[in-house]
Simulated assay, not measured.
Amino acid sequence: MTDNAFRRDVHGNGEIDLIEVLQGLWMQRWLIVLVVVLTAACAAGYAFLSKPVYESRTCFLPPSLSSIAGFNLGRRGGELEPFTVSGVYAVFTRNLQAEESTRRFFKTVYLPSLSEEDRQGSRDRLYAQFRKAFSIKAPDKIQPDRYLLVVQSHDPVLTVEWAKRYIDDVSEQSRDEVLENARREIEVIGTGLQQQIKSLRLAAKARREDRINQLKESLKVA
């Protein structure tokens, strides 16, 4: 059997002749090169024309005991329980993830930073856009106390500024909340002490009146 006969027999079985495939690719070489060049040009044009996205990441861990020492001034050795690291950190992380905190930041910081054109549209759409660029990742099993704040923007300075302003806002809110809790505890204890003093005064007054009545009865008998 000749080579041509063998080749025709292979074609008859529906198999592909590698030499013919290579010849076909060679004939289409300029078309393949053109497609590759156009694809590379489109990718380069997109990378050149599209705005780069910058990202800032801020990690949070529980504070040290010395960092919260100011909250415990005058609380040790009395009826007030000292604030713990876990308790103070729980207040901060709750405010860090609170919808109220992100909504307030969206209204007071994010919206004013947009142009008049970018502010067009519904608030829900703008808030969804904001949440894509502003996210808080909860801790995982490896680091159960570690929270992560991720801020994205086309402006690298803005990413850092937004992260700093949000952290300052949450820190101030958490500090005020801890101080408010302390104030309420003092008020509760103060109210209890006032009630106790009032009860002691009433009891002393009643004993004094009883003693006076006893003396008066003694005088009558005498």
Rank of each mutant, 00 (worst) to 15 (best):
Trp162Ile: 06
Lys132Trp: 08
Arg103Ala: 13
Ala44Ser: 06
Trp162Asn: 01
Gly14Lys: 08
Glu177Asn: 06
Asp3Ser: 11
Lys220Ile: 07
Ser113Glu: 05
Lys164Ala: 12
Thr84Trp: 00
Trp162Arg: 07
Thr2Ser: 11
Glu217Pro: 08
Ala204Asp: 07
Asp155Lys: 05
Lys164Gly: 12
Leu34Phe: 03
Gly78Cys: 00
Ala44Asn: 09
Tyr89Lys: 04
Val160Ile: 15
Asn72Lys: 00
Ser174Ile: 04
Ala182Pro: 09
Ser66Arg: 14
Arg123Tyr: 12
Ser199Thr: 08
Lys205Cys: 11
Ile136Met: 06
Gly14Trp: 05
Gln129Ser: 09
Lys216Glu: 15
Thr93Asp: 00
Val188Leu: 11
Gly74Lys: 08
Ile136Thr: 02
Phe92Thr: 02
Cys59Glu: 13
Glu79Arg: 03
Lys51Asp: 03
Ala69Met: 03
Thr84Cys: 02
Arg103His: 10
Ala69Thr: 02
Leu158Arg: 13
Ala206Arg: 13
Thr191Trp: 06
Phe134His: 00
Leu18Lys: 07
Leu148Ala: 01
Val160Pro: 10
Thr58Glu: 15
Leu114Gln: 02
Leu215Asn: 10
Val91Glu: 01
Ile197Pro: 12
Ser135Phe: 00
Leu96Asp: 05
Lys137Glu: 13
Gln129Arg: 12
Gln173Ile: 13
Leu65Lys: 14
Ala47Lys: 13
Asp118Gln: 15
Ala204Thr: 10
Lys132Val: 06
Gly78Phe: 00
Thr93Tyr: 09
Ser174Thr: 00
Arg94Cys: 07
Ala182Met: 06
Phe105Lys: 08
Ser218Phe: 09
Ser67Ile: 07
Val109Thr: 10
Glu116Cys: 03
Val170Asn: 01
Val10Phe: 13
Asp17His: 11
Val33Trp: 15
Arg7Ser: 06
Val53Pro: 10
